[in-house]
Amino acid sequence: MGFKLLSKLLVYLTASIMAIASPLAFSVDSSGEYPTVSEIPVGEVRLYQIADGVWSHIATQSFDGAVYPSNGLIVRDGDELLLIDTAWGAKNTAALLAEIEKQIGLPVTRAVSTHFHDDRVGGVDVLRAAGVATYASPSTRRLAEVEGNEIPTHSLEGLSSSGDAVRFGPVELFYPGAAHSTDNLIVYVPSASVLYGGCAIYELSRTSAGNVADADLAEWPTSIERIQQHYPEAQFVIPGHGLPGGLDLLKHTTNVVKAHTNRSVVE
């Protein structure tokens, strides 16, 4: 069995187990497998329904001669939608809004960016022009300005110390501490036991640490421990890039980060 097929099978099995364990909360999309990078042309966006009122959005972007996937989250909030992270750029984010209108038909009224990198804030200006209120932590807003990236308009308070959590509509926002970046936030959907790890969490097929220019490698494993301790009931975990899975993604990420750190020390 090929690795790609095995990865998709694991996603399907995880979703099936969740649907059985929580039949009222989960209505997993039966329309197909989780979209992969090879299936999404740059400039297009796919939506994948995880649970009743919960979707991931998947886009792709060219970077350094390669094409990478990027995940975000959409959560229903009454007759409105909360968006977590842009679709990595203005063109993708405009396509995301169009796809949401086509498939869901509810307005996106608020959006949260989970850290300051372009795959999370690139497209904020498109959201703002569409009347979406954009939010991020003060740290993310400051770092985005320093980096020359787009800056969300509103500040999220109460997320300055490791372990801080605040309720934001249908989700809980959690600051686990520094990891992929010093400002990275985690998003949890309690009604569906869905954990969105953003770039602080890796997919299972990833074996290298990737972009760690703004990471705190020493603190990252401790931050992941905080996530595990705060959300032990999480059933569906979405990484910032690639295929979702279960809580095993947290341990896998820790292993990859520690291996990278150990290699760096040896070198």
Rank of each mutant, 00 (worst) to 15 (best):
M1L: 11
L6W: 09
K8P: 03
V11L: 04
Y12D: 12
Y12R: 10
Y12L: 13
Y12W: 13
L13H: 03
A15T: 02
A15H: 02
S16A: 07
S16N: 08
S16G: 13
S16M: 05
M18T: 04
A21T: 02
A21V: 12
S22H: 05
P23Y: 06
A25N: 01
A25Y: 03
A25W: 07
A25L: 13
F26K: 08
F26E: 12
D29P: 09
S30T: 14
S30E: 07
S31R: 07
S31E: 10
E33W: 09
P35E: 08
T36W: 09
T36C: 14
V37T: 09
S38L: 07
E39N: 15
I40H: 03
P41I: 13
P41E: 09
V42N: 11
G43C: 13
G43A: 07
E44Y: 05
L47T: 10
L47P: 08
Q49A: 10
I50G: 10
I50S: 11
G53C: 03
V54A: 06
V54S: 07
H57F: 08
H57W: 11
T60W: 06
Q61H: 03
Q61D: 04
F63P: 01
F63M: 05
F63W: 03
F63Y: 15
D64A: 06
D64K: 10
D64G: 07
A66N: 04
A66K: 06
V67D: 11
S70N: 04
S70R: 00
S70M: 06
N71R: 06
N71V: 05
G72W: 01
L73W: 00
I74G: 05
V75G: 13
R76Y: 05
D77S: 02
D77C: 03
D77F: 04
G78I: 13
D79M: 09
E80C: 14
L81G: 11
L83S: 10
D85I: 00
D85A: 00
T86D: 00
T86Y: 07
T86K: 00
A87T: 01
W88M: 01
G89V: 04
A90T: 14
T93W: 00
A94I: 10
A95S: 11
A95M: 14
L97K: 01
E99N: 12
I100C: 09
E101K: 03
Q103C: 03
Q103I: 14
I104N: 01
G105K: 14
G105M: 01
L106T: 05
L106Y: 11
T109E: 08
V112T: 04
H115F: 00
H115W: 00
H115Q: 00
H115I: 00
F116W: 13
H117S: 00
D119P: 00
D119C: 05
D119S: 01
R120W: 01
R120I: 15
V121H: 15
G122S: 05
G123M: 00
G123Q: 01
V124Q: 14
V124E: 03
V126P: 14
R128P: 06
A130Q: 01
T134R: 02
Y135W: 02
Y135I: 01
A136S: 13
A136W: 08
A136M: 15
T140V: 13
T140D: 02
R141Y: 14
R141T: 02
R141G: 13
R142Y: 08
A144G: 08
A144K: 08
E145T: 10
E145V: 13
E145C: 11
V146M: 13
V146L: 03
G148P: 02
I151R: 12
I151Q: 15
P152S: 14
T153E: 15
H154E: 15
S155A: 11
L156M: 11
E157A: 03
G158L: 10
G158T: 11
G158V: 10
L159Y: 04
L159W: 10
L159I: 13
S160Y: 14
S160M: 07
G163T: 11
A165L: 11
R167I: 02
G169Y: 09
P170W: 13
V171I: 13
E172W: 10
L173Y: 00
L173K: 00
Y175W: 11
P176R: 01
G177S: 04
A179S: 14
S181F: 01
D183V: 01
I186N: 07
I186R: 01
V187M: 01
V187N: 03
S191P: 11
S193N: 13
V194L: 05
V194A: 13
L195A: 06
G197A: 08
G197K: 03
G197D: 02
G198H: 00
I201E: 03
Y202W: 11
Y202C: 08
E203W: 04
L204P: 15
S205P: 04
S205H: 15
S208Y: 03
S208F: 14
A209P: 14
G210C: 10
N211G: 09
V212P: 09
V212W: 13
A213Y: 03
L217H: 01
A218Q: 08
E219Y: 01
W220A: 10
W220M: 08
W220T: 14
T222S: 10
T222K: 14
T222C: 12
T222H: 14
I224Q: 10
E225K: 07
R226D: 02
R226K: 01
I227P: 01
H230M: 14
P232N: 15
E233A: 05
E233H: 10
Q235D: 07
I238T: 11
P239I: 13
P239F: 02
G240E: 02
G240R: 03
G240T: 03
H241R: 01
H241V: 04
H241P: 08
H241G: 02
L247T: 05
D248M: 02
L249Q: 10
L249D: 03
K251T: 08
H252D: 09
H252T: 09
T253Q: 12
T254G: 07
T254M: 06
T254F: 10
V257N: 00
A259S: 02
A259Q: 03
A259L: 03
H260D: 05
T261M: 08
T261Y: 14
N262I: 04
N262G: 08
R263K: 02
S264H: 15
S264E: 03
E267L: 03
